[in-house]
């Protein structure tokens, strides 16, 4: 058995069933203390449900998990003292101001009134919310809300922080601010377990990544290892004349040595590439063969391609409502738009 200080999270065979939907179907995770661990997957893969179980918000139907060696089922109150949770939906009080929110959570964390005030001011300053401190939250932008949410999770300086899709719905600038904040967190010694739908986010932040699909972990490793499974970059090619598609694919096989894929829409060709530089050779070959191109790009593999490679199906092929999210709503946990308007 490993020493509990080495592992922030150890989960074995976690299962959560909602009705006849196995939202999480035997997830294993091991997160080393002091690292950032990314859980990557499309909507409804079971990311949120997994995090909610680890954060003691949901009782697992099977399997077991520990947080710094403390069992999430037998010692939930201890686990709660070790974690901070920032949910997909901002878990702050809409009717309170930013200061009032932080004051409340500080007091609930056992701080004295004076300490709570000091801590709130400090966190508002740190997250650039001082100016908006007394404004009602209803007037906050999505980014401000997320920042306040994260600030609220940091009051007790928890050694483990769960971030459920911390940047979903944020604009690019706010997203990179959020990334900086997360990096600074890790520099102070926190362990971060984050979920994301974006490969580049996991790539930017996480030391290790688990790819999760339909409730199970389909791949685990460093960002490099994952991307290697689909090539380091990916080529996208559209031809001026659809008649030369086959000849182009033949040229790709010759030059890059890989089988290309024809996407049904708009007759595009995609192919994994191990060396982006070799695109030059391909262009020369296409010119020599007299194949005119309309569009060409070399880009990082997308989550879709990683998924396709790992699971054999695209990330969004089931348009059914996301099981994890839908179930969370049904259990009265996540605020759904219907409930907001019904009031």
């Amino acid at each position: 058995m490993t020493h509990s200080s080495d592992w922030a999270v150890e989960a074995h065979g976690l299962v959560k069933v909602f009705g006849d939907n196995r939202a999480v179907d035997g997830v294993d995770l091991s997160v080393r203390t002091g690292t950032v661990y990314g859980v990557l997957g499309p909507n409804g893969a079971g990311k949120t449900t997994t995090i909610r179980m680890l954060a003691t918000l949901l009782k697992p139907d099977g399997g077991d998990a520990t947080v710094f060696g403390h069992d999430i089922r037998r010692e939930p109150q201890i686990v709660r003292q070790l974690i901070g949770v920032t949910g997909q939906y901002a878990s702050v009080d809409e009717t309170l101001s930013a200061t009032e929110n932080l004051m409340l959570f500080s007091r609930l964390n056992g701080l004295s009134r004076a300490d709570a005030r000091r801590k709130s001011t400090e966190l508002l300053e740190e997250f650039g919310l001082s100016e908006a401190a007394t404004r009602p939250l209803k007037k906050f932008s999505g980014g401000m809300r997320r920042r306040l949410d994260l600030a609220a999770s940091l009051i007790s300086q928890p050694p483990l922080i769960f971030l459920d899709e911390p940047t979903t719905g944020l604009d690019p600038r706010t997203r990179s601010q959020m990334w900086d904040t997360i990096r600074r967190l890790v520099a102070t010694g926190s362990t971060v377990l984050l979920t994301t739908q974006y490969l580049d986010e996991a790539d930017q932040l996480a030391d290790r990544i688990a790819v999760i699909d339909r409730g199970i972990v389909v791949a685990e490793g460093t960002a490099g290892e994952l991307k290697a499974s689909v090539g380091t970059s990916s080529l996208l090619l559209r031809l001026a004349d659809a008649g030369s598609l086959e000849r182009a694919r033949h040229a790709i096989l010759d030059v890059l040595g890989v089988e290309s894929v024809l996407t049904p829409e708009a007759g595009r060709i995609t192919a994994p590439m191990s060396d982006p530089d070799s695109v030059t050779d391909l262009l020369i070959r296409l010119r020599a063969d007299g194949i005119a191109i309309e569009e060409l790009s070399v880009q990082q593999p997308t989550l879709d391609e990683v998924f396709l490679a790992l699971t054999g199906h695209p990330a969004d092929d089931d348009a059914a409502p996301a099981p994890g999210d839908a179930a969370a709503g049904a259990s009265g946990a996540a605020p759904t738009p219907e409930l907001e308007t019904a009031r």
């Binding site: 203390t33 109150q77 600074r184 520099a187």
Partner: peptide, 22 residues
């Protein structure tokens, strides 16, 4: 970050019970 170090999870003293005062 103002908090420079975070007390490691394994070296904290914790209890799994909430008292009446709390």
């Amino acid at each position: 970050m103002t908090a420079l170090t975070i007390t490691p999870g394994a070296s904290r003293t914790l209890k799994n019970h909430v008292g009446l005062a709390q």
